[in-house]
Design a protein around this nucleic acid. Structure first.
Length: 111
DNA sequence: TGTTTGACCACGG
DNA sequence: GCCGTGGCCAAAC
């Protein structure tokens, strides 16, 4: 049945995102070297109802919580991130550049 | 079955 | 540093 779809890849990558870290659609798309960032958004949308994927750790290139509106309730995404120690301001990840995590990078501590 | 949209990004001007 | 355009694949209409 279900062949390895682009979504499955995205799910895997997103699951690998360490807690307290955030990634971007472009980074995932670039890591998979397939499709485009748009598909990542679609995949995450599907993942919300299909898999346990920390989609709240995925934000757009600007570090903005673009999909906060899709979490069922606006603010939920921010709450989850803050719960993980990620500071959010104006629907944007503070020190996003610092918390930015790339799938190709091994899990390392920032401290 | 074809068109349109979609949680976007990179590049060029 | 901002604006416009292209691209990419899949699902919904």
């Amino acid at each position: 049945m279900p062949e390895p779809t682009y979504y499955e890849r995205v799910y895997e990558v997103v699951r690998k995102i360490p807690k307290g870290r955030v990634s971007t659609y472009g980074a995932i798309a670039d890591f998979l070297a397939l499709g485009s960032a748009r598909m990542v958004g679609w995949a995450l949308h599907q993942s919300l109802q299909s898999n346990d994927v920390p989609a709240h750790r995925v934000v757009n290139r600007k570090g903005e919580l673009s999909g906060r509106n899709h979490f069922g309730h606006p603010g939920l995404m921010q709450a989850l991130l803050e719960s993980e120690g990620v500071e959010i301001q104006h629907n944007t990840v503070c020190a996003f550049k610092q918390l930015f995590w790339h799938p190709a990078v091994l899990v390392t501590d920032v401290s």
